[in-house]
Structures are given as C-alpha cells and as structure tokens.
Design a protein around this nucleic acid. Structure first.
Lengths: 330, 330
DNA sequence: CAAGTGCTTGCAAATTCTTGCGTGAATAGG
DNA sequence: CCTATTCACGCAAGAATTTGCAAGCACTTG
C-alpha cells in the first residue's frame, strides 16, 4: 500500500534501487537524477525507516555496585556527562542490599530497550559470582563496556586502570620511604583487580604472603584487616580502596599508633575529599575522567555498529602523595 | 465486548499486536504506524488498564541534582533499598552539566511508565527555576514525593528536615560556646531551605544581616563565601552543607587561622566520612534514613491510590558535635 | 475451577530497503 | 563507421524490518 520508497521511485520515474542509492549517498547516480529524487523525497515527505536502536530511546544503562564509595558517584557523573554530550541519557542502576540484583537490572535494561550498558565494579570482576546475565547480553548483542578488570571469558571490551602498576607504585613509594614490612588490604579473594594487585605485591622484594588480608570493601572491613596487619608489625599498609584506607587509619589509631609517623597508609582511587581527611590521604589515582570518556566512546562506537575489539584498554594510574605516608621510623 | 485494545487496532487497521507494541514502546513498529496508533489512542481516549501500569514495571524514578555531595548518593541508597523492599526498582536520574535537564528526565520517566517519582534537591526548591515539568506530572497524576523544602504552590506531599530548627541548633551551639560574631554560608537566594535557615538566623539575637553569604553548593563556593566572612571578623561559621563547610575550613586556613581554635565551622547534612575529615566536622545531621523511608512509604501509598495529604512532613535534625567547633577565644 | 477477557510475545510471512551484477547508451578513440 | 570504455540505471537476490497470527499469560467471572 504505502510502498514509500517505491512511491517515490514511481513519481520520479526511476527504480527503487536508484532512490535507495540517493538516500544512502551511494555513487552511481547522475547529478540530475539525484536532484530529482531529492526533490520528490522532499515533496512526498519521505521519512527513512526508524533505525531501531539508534533512534528510539538513546538510553544507556550504567550499572554500579554501590554508592557508598565516592568513586562510584564520581564515575557516574563522568559517564553521565559524556553520554549526555553524545545525546544519550543514562539510567543509573545500583545494587541494593536486600533488593535488586545485577541480573534483575540486566532484565530491566533489556526490557527498556536500552542502546547499551556500562558496567563498573560488577559481578564480572568476581570469579565466583554468577555470570549468566552477561551471556544473556551477548545473545542479544547489546553493546556493552566493562570498567576495570573482568574475569577472562566474557569477551566484552574493557576500560581498566592498571592494577598491577598501581600496586607497584604504592609499594615502591613505601619502599622508597624505607618501609620493609609492608602489608596489603585487598577485596575478596575472587576479585580480579585485587588479584592483580596481589601479583604485583608478590613480585616485590621481601614480600610476605602472610601480610595480605582479604576483606569486604567497607570502612569496617579495612579496620578489621588493618588491625591484624598492625598486630603483625607492619609499618606500611597498601589498601585496595580509599574507604579501606580510611578504615585502616582508624585501626592504626585504635592500636595507639600514629599515621603517618608510625604506620603509613596508602589508598586507591583518589575519590573526592581525600584531601580533606585527617591526615590527607596518599593514594593512587584512577584516571576516572579519561576512563569514563573512553568507555563512552567505545560504547557509542559499538552502538553505531562499528567493530570494536574486545580488548582491555589499560589506563595508567598516578601516585598522589599527601600526608598519610612518611619515612619509616626504624 | 469492549475489547479496548482491539477497538483501537480496528480503527487504525492494524493488529492488536501492533497496538500493544506501540503502547509498550517496543521496537519493530514503523514510525508512520506508530504515529497512527498514537493518534487513535488519543482520539479514542484509551487508558491502559490500571493494573498493568502498576504491575508491569514497578519502576520508580529518583531524581537528584548531582552526586558530588555525598548526601545524595547516601540518600539514593536509602531510597533504593526501601523501594527494593517494597518490590520496586529505582531508576536514578542525575542532572548532568552539559546535558540532561530535570524536564528531560521527567519526559523520560513518563515515557517509561514509571509508577512514581521521588525528587530530592530539585528545581522545586528554587523559586526562580522553571517548574513547568511539575505541572506535567500533576496533569498525568503521577505519584510524586518531594524531599526537603519546596516552593509553595506545587501541592505534592513532602518529606523535609526542619531547616529552621537545624539553623537554630547550629547557631545555639556556637552561642553556647561563647561566639557572638557568627556568619552564615547559604545556597542561592531563591533556594527555599536556605531561606528557612536564614529566617532562623535573623531571629537569633545579635544577628547581623551583613554576615550572610549566598553561593553555589560547592567546595569552591564555600571557600569564597567564608573568605569574605573571615575578613569580616567572624569567629563562627554556619554552613548550609558539609561541602560548603569543608570549603569554609579551607578558607579559614588560607587566611592563616586555625579551625576550631580561632574560627569554628558547622556543616549541615552529616554526609559520610565527615568523621574522617580534618578536623572531624561538627554538623547538623539530616535523618536521611528516616526521611528516605518515609518518602518511600508515602510514595507507595500514593501508588496504591491511598489518599495522602499534600503536607510537609518535618523531620527533626540532630546536632553532631565533633571537633570543628570550640569555645570562642575572646 | 473452567471459561472468558484483554494484553503480550514468539514466530513466520510479508513488506521494504540495499546491493551486486549486467545492460545499454553516450562518448571517445581508432 | 566500428569498437572500447565509462557511467547511470534497473533487475533481482538477499538483508532487514514490519506486521499479523496464534499461543500464552494474568486476571476476572460464572
């Protein structure tokens, strides 16, 4: 009935093929014909068929594990801003304790016909967590980018900061200050970024596997883990997040020691306000600005059907020396 | 008999399936057909069965102005958790600098058929900001709850912490410590919670209107405002947010003075990590846990068609004395 | 608890658009 | 005047999208 392209073709007296070529800017159409088609297109008010995902919603899901650690809100702001610039709207999905799981959010996002998803700090980073929902995403060919180290077999493009180098920097900084007995507070054992940091730790000279503690990413976790390390006599503690580091500082003080005079503490992330803490926290900064932007660029490329290799893009972290680290006493 | 969806389908000359797809924003419908269906829907005054609307998505929008101030992520966690317990999923919408406005998010949420919306710190709190999108919500009768003081005429139920009392507490605390020259750093002039705090300030003894500064809610804003106040010789500064207070502390130190020995600073919110700052911040806590839960309860009641008065539920804040305030020197 | 109503959704058919290939016309060169 | 080359264009295969059918699901009703 409404053979729209065919109608235009008939009006101009050419074949559908020619009209199609004009619409797509393909060569092989004479200037006169092209113009005639263009005019008819205009007159008949032709609208190109909606390129489904591209034009429909322009929604992108951003899935985060929590909002307590300020790095995640900060990352959300970067990604949200970058997406907005490209004409996308971001939907922030945060796992809640008693409630919505990552898989639930994936279902939701698929149902809402989002154009793509950015995951940060999700289950993909934990070897023992369920990964079924990621397969679902792959089946549906939904453009997806992961932020920070993931388990191996997923095959999504990734944007990460280099955990190995970050741990090296932190340990190197402490060793340069004369620390020899250095402890590490990491996330769960199956957490890939923590594993990478552990590798760097084990590669360092005089590394003592007994001085590595695994815990949850919370202030209390950092406190508990650091208490054990302090009891083992460390003079320097490298933490896998700033929150852990704040917990560690509290633990050191509870033990009657001073930071940084007796024990140095290094965080990771450089989240907001870490320069307002007591003492201002020495930490390894994740370049979240660059990472967020890169993740969005990749995602948009995927959405536009470009071929993006499922590689991991590694970003170099940066040591930010403040006042929670000092020369070793002894 | 009254196959309502079928009726629309017949009128447009398509199948029920197509109408259903349009109603649910599913892909696979041409733009022309979609428009035709939408028109017919409008003409025939189709209303989707009430149950489907509530049951299908169980989505609630949570609209926040930013994520830099940790009070907003914290609030998002509370509300998200409370909603999850009630079987709702929250969609976090954050205004981004160059990008998506509050009105855009309202459009989006309406289009996504959310069951309700919670606004916190939105344009409703600013007298001079555009309010058109709130009217749109009222027209559509979308259940909505506002958090913290709003301009008068909107008529949504509200959950607020009592700004007047909060300011009284802060000022009372400083006066009890012997401070007489007290300054105040507030948000924009048209910001209702700031106005309420100003009222309390003006009602206090010896209040000097010259010691009130209005600024943006950012560390830099607090810094700038506090610098002026310090130059005016205040010994105590009451700030309208913790972030402003951190900026104020920085300003006091830049002026070569000490907090709290020479100038006392009080924040507002008691956001996370304010006990880790240097010095630990004395602040007035918003009971966000109770507020968030109350907001969700109200919203759920609204969604279930209960009658909820469009009142303002006032929550009592709480003074948390840490180490950024001390007895006045002189 | 079966039957019915109203809506949603998987699947396959129908429609619409894209593209490789070949034809024929116009032009140029021999 | 004949042949080679180029170029626009249509044909038709095939890729992609839209649409209806009918099964299925959630809920109500007899």
């Amino acid at each position: 009935m409404t053979r729209r392209l065919a109608e235009v073709a008939k009006k101009v007296g050419v074949s559908e093929a020619t009209v199609s070529r004009v619409l797509n800017g393909k060569p092989g159409v004479s200037e006169a014909t092209r113009e005639a088609v263009l005019t008819a297109l205009d007159v008949l008010g032709y609208e190109r068929p909606t390129q489904l995902r591209g034009d429909r919603a322009r929604l992108v899901g951003l899935v985060l594990p929590e909002l307590q650690n300020p790095i995640f809100p900060a990352f959300a702001e970067v990604v949200g801003g970058a997406l907005a610039q490209q004409g996308f709207t971001s939907l922030l999905c945060t796992r809640t304790v008693g409630g919505v799981s990552e898989a639930d959010y994936v279902d939701l996002l698929l149902q809402q016909q989002v154009s793509g998803v950015v995951f940060a700090g999700g289950f993909y980073a934990q070897a023992d967590a369920p990964h079924g929902h990621y397969e679902l995403i792959q089946e549906r060919k939904l453009p997806t980018v992961l932020v920070n180290a993931a388990v191996d077999h997923l095959g999504f493009p990734q944007v990460s900061s280099d955990d190995y180098v970050a741990a090296e920097m932190a340990i190197g900084h402490l060793r340069a200050l004369g620390h020899r007995r250095i402890g590490m507070v990491l996330g769960p054992r199956d957490h890939i970024p923590s594993r990478r940091k552990l590798e760097a730790f084990m590669a360092a000279e005089e590394a003592d596997p007994g001085l590595v503690e695994h815990t949850m990413f919370s202030l209390e976790g950092g406190h508990a883990a650091a208490t054990k390390l302090v009891n083992s006599g460390v003079t320097g503690i490298v933490c896998a997040s700033d929150i852990l580091a704040l917990g560690a500082i509290r633990a050191v003080r509870r033990a009657g020691l001073s930071v940084p005079d007796e024990v140095s503490v290094i965080g990771y992330d450089d989240s907001a306000m870490m320069n307002c803490t007591d003492p201002p926290l020495t930490t390894v900064r994740q370049p979240i600005d660059a990472m967020g932007r890169a993740a969005v660029d990749m995602l948009v490329a995927l959405i536009e059907r470009a071929v993006v290799p499922a590689d991991e893009l590694l970003f170099e972290p940066e040591l930010v020396v403040r006042a929670s680290t000092a020369r070793a006493r002894i």
